[in-house]
């Protein structure tokens, strides 16, 4: 895809991006080249999906953006300064010895916020994800989907400017996944954070994002960047529309290309 067309279709790239990855590579200590020469810009307030086959380095890219692992080559630029981060892992990753409320409040507690204040904020976040009545429940008393929502509430409680999500709904059934997709879009609409969403589902990437970055494996690299031009609301009507089907087909073709490359 020529860069001009991309710039025209995605106005988010006109302003300085929130984060820019320039020639980023990652070689792990055991010699695995997980990511090679990745260039990627993520505009403030945008919703970008990283799509690719298993093992193509999606999690690695996300962990490098989060600063959890350093790139072995290249740069990660933050032209607007480093934002507050939220991270949602593939598993809910909750502390089993803490109630939902305290799990959500964890980032605030680590920042040494006073107890009353952090509980009030955590409670608001639980309301936002529809779990107000389960503040006192322990993780093992919640269903898989509810645990994931607690995890999302915890990621949002610091009011992050950049939310990183690593296949957060991969382990859930389709009905729950659709509902959480809608929840996530609603929250994104309300709070206008920037979202980087890792997935290996074409349908999910198209439904959620404004732009899909398709990655190829061995070594992990960028194969294509596709804008998702769907100005209307993302809802169940969109999910069944011919536009959606056409967009999915385009992305699917790009993914097949990436798998063959």
């Amino acid at each position: 895809m020529p860069p001009t067309a991309l710039a025209a279709s995605t106005p988010e790239t006109a302003a300085p991006p929130l984060v820019g990855l320039r020639g980023v590579s990652k070689r792990y200590a055991n010699g695995t080249l997980a990511v090679q020469g990745l260039d990627l810009e993520i505009g403030a307030g945008s919703f970008v999906s990283l799509l690719g086959p298993s093992g193509c380095g999606k999690s690695t890219v996300l962990r490098m953006i989060a600063g959890l692992t350093p790139p072995s080559a290249g740069r990660i630029d933050w032209p607007r300064g480093t934002p507050r981060l939220g991270f949602v892992f593939q598993e809910p990753t909750l502390m089993p010895w803490q109630r939902a409320l305290d799990n959500v409040a964890l980032p605030l507690k680590l920042a040494r916020m006073a107890r009353a204040e952090r509980h009030a904020r955590a409670r608001r976040m639980l309301e936002l994800v529809g779990l107000a009545d389960f503040a006192g429940s322990y993780p093992r008393e919640l269903s898989g989907g509810m645990r994931m929502r607690v995890s999302i509430a915890r990621a949002l409680v610091t009011e992050p400017e950049l939310l990183l999500l690593d296949e957060p709904f991969a382990a859930l059934d389709e009905i729950t996944r659709f509902r959480l997709n809608n929840d996530l879009l609603r929250l994104w609409g309300e709070r206008r954070f920037t979202a980087v969403f890792v997935t290996h589902s074409v349908f999910e990437s198209v439904y959620l994002s404004q732009r899909v970055a398709v990655m190829a494996a061995h070594p992990g690299r960028l194969h294509a960047e596709l804008p998702v031009e769907a100005p209307g609301a993302r809802d169940e009507a969109f999910r069944t529309s011919p536009d959606y089907a056409a967009l999915c087909r385009t992305v699917s073709t790009a993914l097949e290309g990436a798998m063959a490359a």
């Binding site: 962990r63 600063g67 959890l68 991270f87 892992f89 990753t93 502390m95 964890l106 680590l110 920042a111």
Partner: peptide, 22 residues
């Protein structure tokens, strides 16, 4: 758990906080 440890790191937990709370 590796992810929980990463989470603590991400939110800038001190060694002491990681020990006591995780």
């Amino acid at each position: 758990d590796r992810n929980l440890a990463d989470l603590f790191r991400l939110y800038g937990a001190s060694r002491w906080q990681t020990l006591w709370q995780l």
